[in-house]
Design a protein around this nucleic acid. Sequence first.
DNA 1: CGTATATATCTTTTT
DNA 2: GATATATACG
Length: 769
Amino acid sequence: MSDPFALDEDPTPAPFTPARGAVAAPVSMGPPPAWITSLNAEQREAVETTEGPVLVLSGAGTGKTRVLTARLANILAKGLAKPWQVLSVTFTNRAAREMRERVSALVGPVAEALWLGTFHAIGVRILRRHAEAVGLKSNFTILDSDDQLRLLKQVMEADSIDSKKWPAQGLMGVIQRWKDRGLTPDKVTAGEKSEFAAGRALALYSAYQDRLKQLNAADFGDLLLHGLTIFQSQPEVLAQYQDQFRYILVDEYQDTNVAQYLWLRLLSQKQKNLCCVGDDDQSIYSWRGAEVGNILRFEKDFPNAKVIRLESNYRSTPTILAAASHLIAHNEDRLGKTLRTGRDGIEDGEQIEVRGVWDGAEEARWVVEEIEGLQRRGQKLNNVAILVRAGFQMLEFEERLIQTGVPYRVIGGPRFYERLEIRDALAYLRLINQPDDDLAFERIVNKPKRGIGESTVQKLHVLARAQNVPLMEATLRMIETDELRPQVRSTLRDLMASFARWRTMRETLPLTELTALVLEDAGYLEMWKNDKSPEAPGRLDNLREFATGLSEWDSLAGFLDHVSLVMENEANAADEAVSLMTLHGAKGLEFDAVFLPGWEEEIFPNRRALDENGQAALEEERRLAYVGITRARQRVFISFAANRRVFAQWQSSLPSRFIDELPKENVRLQSDAGQFGNRGFSEGWQSMTAKWGNAAPGGFSSQRRPPVVDTKWEVVPRESQGGIDIGDRVFHQKFGYGIVTAVDDCKLEINFEKAGVKRVMDSFVTLAH
DNA sequence: CGTATATATCTTTTT
DNA sequence: GATATATACG
C-alpha cells in the first residue's frame, strides 16, 4: 500500500497516445478542432478557461454537456494533464457513462483512464485504498438502504427504543442528513440534536457506525464521509490526491451537498483548477441534502473565480422557453437568469397542450392516443417521454401502453437487483466475498428452509456479541460445542463447509459457474422449483439471467460494487420505445415531445413535500416542473385528472397551481365536452377552473382566451353550483351518496356513506333528495 | 420450527 | 392492492 497512485489500477498504457487521428499531438498548433470552433463565445470561454476556478451557470438546454466534454477533451488534447490526473464527477451513472462516451468520441480511448464517475463511485475507489484509516478492510460491503434499515432496527432494538413510536426510517433520515452535511458522530454538536427518540439519535448514530465497522460495511453516505475523514486526518494522503488531480470538473453542481462540497474543496485547494457547472433553477435534490447555497459559496471560497453564464438555449422552441421561463419566474429564491433562444429565425412552435380529464385511466388513454398521433406523423418513439412526479403514477401508463402495443421502457423503475430472489443470491455472493457481512448471513441462513429458526439465530447472536465476532465466526465456534440440537448442528456444519468450499472455488471458477453452483448446492434453485406460486418460474428466469449477466465480470468484488452503485438496469436503447420515468430521472435528458401528466394539487406539487418544507418545497416542486418542460424540444403535453385512485380509494383533485402559472398565450387548453356523458363534467370542470382561477393570485383565467372553452368561461353563473349547504344529502359519481359536513367556497367536505369523508369540488356533486 | 391469517403502512424524488 | 411484520396455532 505504499503508493496509492501506482498505475496498475489505471488501465492506460504509460505513454499518452492520441486517438486515431481524432486529435493532434499535445500542445497542438494549427487550427482548433471542430468541437471547439462550433461552440458559441460563452461556451468556448468555459472550455478554454482551463486554469483557475470557474463557475459555469448554465440554463437548461444551453449545451452544458457539450461544454463539459469539450473541456475534458481540450485538457487532454492540449496535454495539460494525463487522463488519470483529471477528476470528473457526476451525479448519475447515466451522466457518467454519457460523458465518457462523448469524450471518447472526441479524443479516443485515452478517455478510459479518466477519473470519471459519480461521487459515490469515485468515493469507493478512494476508500478501498485507504479503508484501514477508518477501521474498515478493503473488501468492505456497501449496504443498500434496505440493509441499512434492518441494521438500524437492530441498533434501536439493542437500545430498547420503541420502534412503533420512533420508526427506524426516521432515524435513517436523521443520520443521512448528518452525513450529507459531513458530520461524523463526534462532530454533531449539542445544538444539532435531533428530536428523534427523545434526543438519543446521536447515541444511536454512534452505535450504528460501530456496528458498520464490525460488519466491515459502509452505507452510501459513508462512501464520501469516510473519504472526508481520511483527507482531514491524514494530510499526506490528501496531498497525494491534490497533486494527482490537476483538473477537477463537477456536473450538476447545484445538487451537491455539504459533504460533497467539502470533499471537492479539499481536493482542489492546491491546484484550484475546479470547474463547476450548474443551474440553480434545476436544483431538485434538496431533500437529499443538496445545497443551492454551494453555488453562492463558490465565489466566496474562490474569490477570483471566473463566472460564465450560458443562456442561449439550443433545445426548445421559443414557445416552450417562454412557458418555462414564465413558470420559474414565480420562484423568489433564484439567482435570476434569462434563457433565450440560441437560434435565429426559428418559428415559435406549437402551443403547449393542457388537458383536463375525468380520471387517471382517461389520462393514460389520452396520452397514448397523442403519442400514436405523433407516431403517425413520423415521430420516433425514442424521442418521446412521459415524465411523472412519482413512481406510482407509472402503472397506469404501463397498462395502457401494453394494451395498445406501443413499445416503452421504464427508466429507473423497479430494479432488477432489488428483486427478492436476486437479493438472496447476492447475499450468498456477499458472504463469500466478505464473511463479516452479518446482514447477508441472516438473510440466507434459512433460505432455503433448513430448520434454522429464530431461536437458533438468537443463540448465534448472543455468542457473537459475547465474543465480539461476526455471525459466521460465531457459528463456526458454536458447532464445536453441544449447545445446539444435533440436527441443527450438522446442518450448520454442512453450510459452513459449503461456504469454505465455495470460497476456494471463487479463485478458479468463472463467476457465472460459481453462482450457478452455489445456488444449486445450497438448494436455493430447488426451493423455487418446488414452489407452486405463479411467480416462481419468473424468479428462476431472473436467477438464470442474473448468473448469465455475471459472465461480463471477472472479479466478484468488482461486480458487487457495480450492483451497489449502479442499481439501474441498462436500457436497451436500440429499440424504438417511449421512455417512462420520474421527473427526477429525466434531468439532463431531452426529447422531441414530453408528456407531463398528473399536474394536480397534492400530487404535483407533492403534498408531503409541502407539509415538510413549506415554501422552500413549493419552489423546489416548481423547479421540477421547470425541468420537465425544458426537457422538450418541440412539444409539451400537460394533463390533470379530476379523480384519481390513491391506494384503493378514489380521491378528487384540483388542477395544479402550476397550470395557472403558465403564460396564457403559449397554452392551448382542452376539455372534451360531451365525453363524460350527460352528467356535466365539462361544465363542472369549466366552472371549477374559472372560479379557482379567479381565486388564485396571478391566475390566467381572468386574462387568457382559450379557444375551446373561452366563451362559456365567465358565463357559468355562480348559483349553478351553489345552493349546497351543510347537512345536504348529495350524490357523487364515484363516491355515491353522502352528507355535506363543511363548505369552504366551492370546496365541500362530504361524509360519504361508502367512501368515508372526502373533500370534493361542489361541481362534482348533485343534490340528492 | 413452520405455516396461516390478520394488520399496518405504504407512494416523493436517488446514489 | 400489495407487501412486510405480528400473532396464533399446528
